[in-house]
Amino acid sequence: MLVGSGTIACDCLNEIVRYVNGSNIHVMEIVESSLSFLKEQCKKNSVEYIPCLRENILEHFMRYTKEGEILIISANNEYIFPAELVKQENVTIINFHYSLLPAYRGVNIPTWVIYNEEKYTGVTWHYATDQIDHGKIIAQKEIEITESTTAFDIVRKGMKIGNILFVDFIKELLNGEKMGYDVEYSVDSKLFRKSILPQGGVLDLTDTAHNIQKLLRAYDYHGSNVIPPLKTKIKDQLWQVVRYEIREQKDTELPEMDFMENDLIVNKDGGKIHIVLRKV
C-alpha cells in the first residue's frame, strides 16, 4: 500500500510497479484538491486509487490488514499512524521524512531548518513506530543549506534524493530482507507541530535585513499552500507577502523603507529586498 501525494509518491509508485503486479497495489491519498497527479499515475499503471478523508483513512487501512502481510509506504504524507495499526504483527510501515532523523521530528521542517540557520538538513526513510518520526533508519542523505536556499528548494531536492534512496532499497525490502539501524531518540527531543510557525507567521520589518531575508526564504514554498502565507503590518494594516526579490547591493538613493501601493522596498544593512504585498 502507498499513502501520500506529490512527486515522490508518484515516483515511488513507478518503482513499485516494476516488482509488484498492479492488482496487488493499493494507493491512498488524503484528498484536499480536485487535481491529483497520483490519481493519474495510478490510472496509467492500472493501480487502485482510493481518495480518503482524514477521518476515515484508518478504516481503509484496517480493511486491508486482514489480507495477510502488508507493507505501507508513506511518502509525503502527514497522516499519523495510530498504535492500533502500527503494532499489528502483519503490518510494516516505512515513512519518508524531511530531516536527518533523529533531529527535527514533526512537520514544516524545511521552514524550521532555514529559520534556525542550520548548515545542513536532509531526508530520511525509516520504519514507523507508534511515536511520531521514530524508528530504525533505512536510508538518509544530507542536503546543504546556503544563504539563498528556500523551503521549496529543500522540498524539491528532498523529493529527488528520497526517490534515489527508495530505488536503492525497495527491491530488497519487498523481498523480505531485514534492513535499517537504530539511532538514539532523546526523550525530550522537540516535535515540530503544524500549529506553530517561526515568529507566528509575522514578518517584523524593524528586524535586520538578514533576519527578514531568512524568514522570507523559510516561508517560500513557491506559491504552494504548505503553510499559511507570511504576513506583516504597515501602519495598522495587515498585509500578506505575495512574492519577493532579494538583491545584494543596497540602493543608496532610497530610504531604509519605501512603501507605495502594494510594493515595499526594504533597503538596509547592505542589501535591498523588494516585497510585493496584498491586503488581508
Rank of each mutant, 00 (worst) to 15 (best):
L277K: 05
I72F: 10
S5Y: 10
G271S: 15
L264K: 04
V266C: 09
K44D: 00
L71K: 02
N163T: 11
G223I: 04
D204I: 06
K279D: 05
I154A: 02
H126R: 06
L216R: 07
I57H: 02
M62P: 00
N225Q: 10
S99V: 05
G6F: 02
I109Q: 06
T150S: 13
I72E: 05
D188R: 15
Y219I: 05
Y19K: 02
L13K: 01
N175Y: 13
E117Q: 13
S34K: 07
N95K: 12
I138T: 10
V47T: 01
A103Q: 15
E256I: 08
I234Q: 06
I30G: 08
I8V: 10
S148K: 12
T124G: 01
H97G: 00
I132C: 07
V17W: 03
Q199H: 06
G4C: 07
V17C: 03
Q88E: 09
K178P: 14
L238R: 04
N175K: 15
G135V: 09
V280M: 10
A209D: 08
G176Y: 11
Y49I: 01
E172T: 08
I50S: 01
A139T: 08
D188Q: 14
Y244D: 08
F61K: 10
T92S: 15
M159F: 11
Y98D: 02
F166M: 04
Y120L: 07
M179D: 14
K43A: 07
D263S: 14
L197N: 00
I16A: 00
A83Y: 06
P198N: 02
I132S: 09
S46A: 11
P228T: 04
T7S: 11
V266Q: 08
Y221M: 00
Y104V: 02
K190T: 14
I93V: 10
D133V: 06
I137R: 10
Q199M: 11
F96T: 01
I80P: 00
E59P: 05
N175R: 15
N175H: 14
S46R: 13
C10D: 05
Q41N: 10
C12S: 06
S5E: 12
D258G: 08
S5G: 09
S99H: 04
E69S: 12
N267D: 03
R278E: 10
V167M: 12
G200S: 05
R278I: 03
I94L: 07
D269L: 12
D133T: 09
I109V: 13
I16R: 05
F37Q: 11
V202S: 10
E147M: 04
I164L: 13
K141R: 09
L85K: 04
I164P: 10
A9P: 02
G158S: 03
K44V: 00
S74V: 08
V47S: 01
E248V: 07
V20K: 12
R243T: 15
Q140V: 05
N95A: 12
E245C: 11
D188H: 15
C10Y: 12
D188M: 14
Y49C: 01
I138L: 15
L216I: 07
T65K: 10
H26G: 02
I212P: 08
I164S: 14
E144K: 03
T149H: 03
S34L: 09
Y127K: 06
A83I: 00
T150R: 04
I132F: 12
P229S: 06
R278M: 07
T149Y: 00
V187P: 06
I132Y: 12
H126M: 09
